[in-house]
Nucleic acid binder design. Structure first.
Length: 1099
RNA sequence: GCGCGGUUAGCUCAGUGGUAGAGCAUUACCUUGACACGGUAGGGGUCGCAGGUUCGAACCCUGCACCGCGCACCA
């Protein structure tokens, strides 16, 4: 800090120190270290992503935790990496290729397309990593991982095969969430329900017999209108209302006309027309799926319809089919809610999840009418075929209108599942996919802590240990933070912060369905399954001998559709342990064989045998869920795993609690429970901190389309990374969403500048002796070596040392409880409001008055000049020593939050030179985290708490004295003289401090001062302060001020008096509280007396 | 429908039973020797509503309202 600039300039400082940390390998974790471990795995950002505010929040927190842990003496591993993000990345590259070459991925072919994605990854993969570096993240970059690294892919395959062998992974033709844009299946978690405005269409169909002849209404009895369920609207005509004439109703569709009132009736019962024919009205939001209907269902308990079960209806679409091909049964199914709609449900087993289940129960045929891309296929009928599903909906409605069967069309809002990625409605679609039955569910449920009061007991790994807090921990620590240090080797449960997420997690785990893990994409881990299908008749010839004999010897081999397992030694391998497990399915003429293997060599052999690999890839989360251990060398027993697994903290957003957190926990129990790892626990982390979601200042989510997402790098270049970090942390309370405002970053920058200038001020006061004096420093060489001398400590010194002690406690506790905004606020308050506003200002009394020792007034001339000078010098040096003590602690407290500026100051202020190389001598990163003052220190320096109160009283007097100025309408610049009438002895130091803080020209201390009538004054336990204005006083203004004050005091007195007059209060309240109230009353009364006297004096 | 948050100054939020707080914004004054990215002083609040518990409630309990989120959803 030789040429110290007036304002802090972060840009050069940040780059310089980041490079230094990298060069010095400060972030590299040593798995062989004897220090206790602390570890975090980064939630891997998308490899081609860009840093956004969510990353800033998330990674700043991780960096704070990591840096704090290093200062606590832990061996820290913060393991970074990126995620291949299947759909997102593939879509991005496809879009690019489309734009630049007007080609689809299919034009390029799989191999070429994957080349392009890899090229894209190589080109853009470092961007986000470099952005994290800009932010100051102290990740161990030597261990950076990517979810498609060869070793990582190996883990994914191994896990797949293991689960497959356990029978937890299976293939099945099921209803899945299909995204017609990405053209892939999705998991339930990737579907987002959104309210959608549409229409509810009611159309009617005739109930017929199996031969197509009308069901006679006579047969229909015992239906009577009055036997309806209570909720059904009663209508005397309902049973006999006339059917609408053919070709009815296009104009009145909006719902107000005759038609709609009749349709209300139609809800209550089937209509019976004059010819005695029975009509059912069906409600649907998706008329385009009518061609796929294979039944209509009613509730068997519904008296309106139950008698029709077993009859048929004629499906209106496709219109061109002959009626006999459109006959579908009326079935009874409990699923139908007869209070909803008309109580008649059209069943489309191929295009609706619930309908599929109904179809399965009733063995209904499936008619698929929608293609993978969301268009209709020929089975939907001529007019619909080829149309997009939404267009087809409109056309289907037109056809129903033409047929005269549409009875109502009313606006309707319902929830529709959307593909999270592509933002289009998903299509429930039947397809063959791979599914996973989640493993270790029960363990995963049991492992999370649920106690209500656990928020106060933060660290299961005893991150807060007795020694890390110092032995003198009393008041603030006794709240419980020191509490249960976990007994060594005993696993505790995992903790969520804030805890309420445990309930959400639990609920999800209780209700999970199997996970659809296959994706019809190309970018991702290809499913390690190979299949081969041979004609039964040619099996012997077509199969390798080993396989054929295994097949031939298998029991039940002729059973149709029978699945069994055979283990086949691979012919080319002599190693007997080398088996690939194969499943086979035999149908009437074919044998289908399936094999899964994680080994590339076996895959090659399988291919030689004519097996082909499943074309699908795995869900991206199927690789992410292995992140905590696959990045550490699993399945080998690496040093890293032994040292750093389970990780200490996970920091992530609650939006991926199901996608990622829950699944990682299950994977941890499933794959890390193996005794060979000799781990204390299989759980992947001990604490999960859920950040809030970053929103803009209007509370909206940040999104590209809204354009409300600021670019963190722009903010960093404008304000500095420290400023961004500090501002974000200050406004990010535990568990709350963060409303981001650039003002917060500005605040951070201002704070850094304040810190910078406070150090600059210290620097300008010269050397305290520890570091050599620079050329232009005062000529005196201080003797005291920067040590604090008790006898020279002023009350202000003691006050700031005590405040520092409190700040250390407060910040440490806040960090241990993951309360980052609390820690930041405490530091801000301490440094700005206590250190800068009061201590630094008060210290000027020492610096400036001692330097004026040479100009001592004449009455002191007898005192030896040199003695005076040296006393003043010693006093000054002592204050500098206190400043250094406070600053060197403060800078360390700030380091996790503001890594760059603190490193710069640490060196610039020379604090690094006092430390051993490994403990701050080289970098502040390894400097010890400040401990609360020890009993030795407080005893040595005489830091009694009474100095807090004493000095607060002094500062309060100053505040009131300043107020007199304003009350007297005196400009801030105008130098004024105050008179102080002390109640007891006032030290010259305190007099000087008061004078300086009042910005007074002079402070006359006069024990016998007789103020002229009307002199404004303030009262304090220290004495009375006057601002004599010699007739310049604005009497009216002063009267108003005093009157106001009297009023205020009286209000307070009344409040306290009322309390004290209540016998209930005086008898029931704890003595301390009672005493406090009595004291308060006395204080107010004194104040009142003075204010009243002053007011009276004005006449 | 079920569950979870929230409601305190103009804005964003702290505040777990004992004198209502911070930052920003705002008003007035000040470029004094670290800092105008600064200083000093001020104005501004029936703590969502209604009950209850208590000597005492922003805080604990009950109910309600409104805002947000999650889960489940019936055409």
């Amino acid at each position: 800090m030789s040429e110290i600039s007036k304002a802090y300039e972060p840009q050069t400082v940040e780059d310089k120190w980041y490079q230094f940390w990298l060069d010095e390998k400060c972030f590299v974790a040593d798995a062989t270290s004897s220090k206790p471990a602390y570890s975090i795995v980064i939630p891997p950002p998308n490899v081609t992503g860009m840093l956004h505010m969510g990353h800033v929040l998330n990674n700043t927190i991780q960096d704070i935790l990591s840096r704090k842990a290093r200062m606590d003496g832990k061996e820290v591993l913060w393991l970074p990496g990126t995620d291949h993000a299947g759909i997102a990345t593939q879509m991005m590259v496809e879009k690019q290729i489309k734009k630049e070459e007007k080609k689809s991925r299919h034009d390029l072919g799989r191999e070429e397309f994957l080349k392009r994605v890899w090229a894209w990854k190589e080109k853009h993969g470092d961007i986000i990593i470099n952005q994290l570096k800009k932010l100051g993240c102290s990740c161990d970059w030597t261990r950076e991982r990517f979810t498609m690294d060869p070793e990582y892919s190996r883990c994914v395959q191994k896990v797949f095969v293991e689960l497959y062998k356990k029978g937890l992974i299976y293939r099945g033709k099921r209803m899945v969430n299909w995204c017609p844009v990405s053209q892939t299946a999705l998991s339930d978690e990737e579907v987002e329900m959104k309210p959608q405005k549409g229409f509810m269409y009611h159309f009617r169909v005739e109930a017929v017999e199996s031969d197509g002849s009308p069901v006679k209404s006579a047969n229909a009895r015992p239906l009577t209108v009055t036997s309806h369920e209570p909720s059904a609207p009663q209508s005397p005509n309902a049973g006999t209302v006339s059917p609408s004439p053919g070709g009815v109703a296009t104009a009145a569709m909006a719902g107000e006309g005759e038609l709609s009132s009749r349709s209300a009736d139609s809800k209550s019962a089937p209509e019976i027309d004059s010819a005695g024919r029975i009509w059912l009205t069906i409600a649907t939001t998706r008329p385009e799926t009518i061609p796929g209907d294979t039944a209509v269902a009613v509730n068997p308990k519904d008296p309106r319809y139950a008698h029709l079960i077993g009859k048929y209806i004629v499906r209106p679409l496709p219109a061109e089919l002959p009626p006999e091909q459109k006959l579908i049964p009326i079935i009874g199914d409990e699923h139908v809610d007869f209070e909803f709609g008309t109580g008649v449900l059209k069943v489309t087993p191929a295009h609706d999840k619930a309908d599929f289940d109904i179809g399965a129960r009733h063995k209904l045929p499936l008619i698929e009418v929608i293609n993978a891309d969301g268009s209709m296929n020929p089975l939907a009928g001529g007019p619909l075929s080829g149309l997009d599903r939404f267009k087809a909906r409109k056309v289907a409605v037109e056809i129903l209108k033409e047929q005269g069967v549409l009875v109502e069309e009313k606006p309707y809002e319902n929830n529709v599942g959307f593909s999270q990625r592509a933002d289009v409605p998903i299509e429930p679609r039947l397809s063959e996919q791979w599914f996973l039955k989640y493993p270790a569910v029960e363990q995963s449920k049991a492992c999370v802590h649920h106690d209500q009061d656990s928020e106060r007991v933060p660290m299961a790994d005893a991150r807060v240990s007795a020694e890390s807090l110092g032995s003198s921990g009393d008041a603030p620590f006794s709240k419980g933070s020191l509490a249960p240090a976990r007994a060594a080797g005993v696993s505790d449960k995992m903790r969520f912060h804030p805890q309420r997420w445990a309930k959400v997690y639990d609920h999800w785990l209780t209700n999970i369905q199997d996970w659809c893990i296959s994706r019809q994409l190309w970018w991702g881990h290809r499913i390690p399954v190979w299949t081969k299908s041979v004609l039964k008749s040619e099996a012997k010839k077509a199969l390798p001998e080993t396989l054929w004999s295994a097949f031939e010897n298998a029991k039940d081999r002729d059973t149709n559709n029978h699945t069994a397992y055979i283990f086949v030694p691979l012919a080319q391998k002599s190693d007997e342990k080398s088996f690939v497990r194969m499943d086979w399915t035999i149908s009437s003429d074919k044998i289908e064989i399936t094999a899964a293997t994680e080994f590339p060599s076996e895959a090659v052999i399988l291919e030689e045998f004519g097996f082909t690999q499943d074309p699908d890839v795995l869900d991206t989360w199927f690789s992410s869920w292995l992140w905590p251990f696959a990045t550490m060398g699993w399945p080998e027993q690496t040093e890293t795993l032994k040292k750093f697994y389970p990780t200490t903290d996970l920091v992530t957003g609650p939006d991926i609690i199901f996608f990622w957190v829950a699944r990682m926990i299950m994977a941890g129990y499933e794959f890390m429970g193996d005794a060979k790892f000799a781990l204390p626990d299989a759980m992947p982390f001990r604490n999960v901190y859920f950040t809030g979601i970053i929103r803009d200042k209007q509370g909206r989510k940040m999104s590209k389309t809204l354009g409300n997402s600021p670019d963190p790098l722009v903010l960093i270049s404008q304000y500095g990374a420290d400023a961004l970090r500090f501002g974000t942390m200050r406004s990010a309370p535990l568990g709350q969403d963060v409303l981001f405002d650039e003002k917060d970053v500005e605040l951070g920058r201002n704070f850094c500048n304040k810190l910078w200038n406070a150090c600059r001020f210290r620097q300008m006061q010269g050397s305290a002796g520890a570091s050599p004096a620079s050329e232009d420093a005062p000529s005196e060489q201080f003797e005291i070596q920067g040590e604090i001398v008790r006898t020279l400590l002023t009350p202000d010194d003691k006050w700031i040392l005590l405040k520092l002690d409190l700040a250390i406690r407060e910040v440490t506790i806040a960090l241990n409880e993951y309360k980052f905004s609390e820690a930041t606020s405490a530091l801000y308050r301490f440094f700005w409001n206590e250190y800068c506003d009061w201590y630094v200002e008060a210290s000027k009394a020492v610096f400036f008055s001692s330097s004026r020792g040479n100009e001592a007034p004449s009455e002191k001339s007898e005192i030896d000049q040199s003695l005076l000078t040296s006393a003043a010098t010693a006093q000054k040096a002592n204050s500098l020593a206190v400043m250094d003590f406070v600053l060197s602690h403060t800078i360390r407290l700030f380091h996790p939050f503001l890594p760059f500026i603190t490193e710069e100051l640490w060196h610039g202020m020379g604090y690094s030179t006092d430390m051993p190389a490994g403990q701050g001598g080289k970098t502040i990163m390894n400097a010890p985290w400040p401990l609360p003052l020890t009993d030795d220190e407080t005893g040595e320096w005489g830091l009694d708490d009474c100095y807090l109160e004493m000095t607060d009283t002094k500062y309060e007097l100053v505040r009131n004295g300043r107020d007199l100025r304003r009350a007297g309408n005196i400009q801030a610049a105008k130098k004024v003289k105050y008179v102080f009438k002390p109640a007891q002895h006032l030290t010259p130091h305190d007099a000087e401090v008061i004078k300086l803080l009042l910005n007074a020209e002079a402070l006359e201390v006069n024990e016998t001062f007789q103020p002229p009538k009307g002199t404004p004054s303030v009262q304090s336990p220290m004495g009375e302060l006057f601002l004599p204005l010699e007739g310049l006083i604005d009497v009216a203004a002063e009267k108003i001020r005093l009157a106001k004050e009297v009023e205020k005091i009286q209000t307070e007195i009344t409040k306290v008096e009322q309390k004290l007059a209540n016998p209930n209060f005086t008898t029931k309240v704890p003595p301390a509280v009672l005493q406090e109230h009595e004291q308060r009353l006395a204080d107010w009364k004194t104040k009142l007396a003075h204010a009243q006297a002053a007011l009276d004096a004005l006449g």
